[in-house]
Amino acid sequence: MNLNISLSEFVEFMAALSLFFAILQTASHRLDFAIKTYTAQSIALSITMFLSVFYYFDYELILSAVLTLLIKGILIPFVMKKITDKIVEDENVKPFVNFTYSVLICIFIVIFSFYITSNTFYCSTDNGTMQKVLAIGLSIIFVGIFLMLARKKALIQIIGFLTLENGIILGATSTVKGLPLIVEIGVFFDVFVGAIMAGILIFHIKDTLESIDTSKLSDLKE
């Protein structure tokens, strides 16, 4: 019995871990737990990107990985935490689809993503690693979209959007060796500013509706 974990397996593992944290978000009952899982997911993503550097020998990815870690792993969770602390409300995530069904639907999403990517994409150099990472990235995108649809609170919808973003970056890393650096930096600041603006919007929703429950947005008011 000899243990040989290769680099490609480690890349797969970190990507799959990031997918698992995305699924865990759909099962989280509380906002602060969702933010913590988002942090863990972003860190797993940045480790995946960092390991892809040794896979592709494309050193621009190091910068992307570090930026992911800084912005998505530290800065955005910090901002989100600030927002949750200021809006003193019950911390429960109100679901449209309950938590057990959410996780079950996410499992179907994962199987579906693996199915649709199974025949489309073959890289000549590796033994299907990046194909798996692409499938995982696609799953994370779908899970993010599902999270945006299935929850009532605005804050967790933002987390769903950020999850979707992580999925896109993972997909880009697996197919085209990462986006060009300029584009990537642009995307990062876009996401960061987007998160801050969403936070400001949440304050406004809170001011006018006295709740961040988006299902109440259509209620009539004088």
Partner: peptide
């Protein structure tokens, strides 16, 4: 269900 998701993954 989370453990089922892990196993399926």
């Amino acid at each position: 269900m989370i453990s089922f998701a892990l196993a399926t993954l």
